[in-house]
Amino acid sequence: MDFRDTEQQAELRQSIRAFCATHCDSESEAAREQSEQYPADLHRALAAAGLLGLGLPRDYGGGGLDLLAQCIAFEELSRHSGAAANILFINGVCGALVAAGGSPAQREALLGPLCAGELRFAFALTESEAGSDLAGLSLTAQPRGEDYVLSGSKLYTTGAADAHFLLTAARSDAKAGPRQGISLFLVPADSAGLEITALPKLAGNEIASCRVAYRDVQVSSDARLGEANGAWSWLMLGGALERLSVAASCLGLSRAILDAVLAHAAEREQFGQPIGRFQAVQHRIADMSVRIEAMQWLVYAAAQAADLGAAAQRQICSAKLFAAENAQQIAQDGMRLLGGRAYFSDNPMQRRLREALLALYAGGTMEIQRNLIARSLGL
């Protein structure tokens, strides 16, 4: 396989680097995190640059790009800004599900404003007893005339506190099989009975992850995405997009760590010479480089396989598993190579370590990735 950038991919990469140079310098990223306020300015800037809808249809203002190009976008954004990548990630997954499963009216009403930065979304999926086991969803959607009444709660819904719509997975038929009785609903965030509570976390508090309580929240049948009880395939699509996005983000984060380590190894002197001349330092950096090269091949190959229409679940899970575990190791190595200075809050390395830890859970745990890989091998 040849993963050298095409002309279009190279232009995309350069445009995102230029965007990040303007909007995502290290000081701005630290200030955003410390503020714990939603980065609306960054959201608007992403929209103005045409980055919010990269994978969405051009008819609605999107870029119409394939998954490999989207992975390059996540890679470059994550190299500079976890917040920017997170905004693209949340709205990109929700937008893709609306584009794939929504009615013409829903696509017309929602996708253009999403790409323009006028509407924000959150994906309300995880529950306290239904994280890895999505078929165990317990939030219910009971028909009431032409409407549905949603009751239950969601957990760790990132972006909910600042979203206009919560794309919510609910059990709409208790008598159907665990995978057959689930529907998706576009729930307005200002709906009566909806209670959203931000949950403090280790990193990324500028985009709050929330507990969401649905206390008899009434929505119209027009808010349902796709057929009643037919959302399982859309949840699988969303899961695949999440895993691939997380894997690509790990690649960008790891490249940022390597960049910082190489600069430090060249500048920092001990015992009369740059520390990059010590074999122990060289070997650790060499291992980081090897991990990143392997990560790139797994991520790009998975995206390319999916773009070609192959059944790419094993490749996507493999990419997510390898990228998440190795990004954590690379971040730990970065902390060690920078020494004590990396431990202090004014150094970006400690933020990168905290961001790397999220990849162990976002898009599914490492154990779930291994389960899915084993299942695809017939075990």
Rank of each mutant, 00 (worst) to 15 (best):
A263H: 11
V246N: 13
N326M: 11
A310H: 10
R291N: 11
S318F: 00
Y300W: 15
R291M: 15
V290S: 09
A331S: 10
A324V: 13
H264W: 10
A323D: 01
L308E: 15
W297F: 14
I330F: 03
S220A: 10
V219Q: 11
C317D: 15
A311G: 09
V290I: 12
I257N: 07
L262S: 06
M236Y: 00
H264P: 01
D259H: 07
A310Y: 06
E242P: 03
L258S: 07
S318T: 14
S245T: 10
R268I: 03
I257D: 01
E269I: 08
L321T: 07
R224K: 13
L321A: 14
A260C: 09
W232S: 06
L251I: 06
E269G: 01
G276M: 01
E293R: 14
L225W: 04
Q218L: 14
Q328V: 15
Q218T: 15
F271S: 13
Q279F: 09
R284F: 00
A231I: 02
A266V: 03
V299H: 02
S221F: 04
A223P: 04
N229I: 04
Q282P: 00
D307C: 09
E227A: 15
S318M: 11
S289M: 11
L308R: 15
H264G: 01
Q329Y: 08
P274A: 06
E227I: 00
M295F: 05
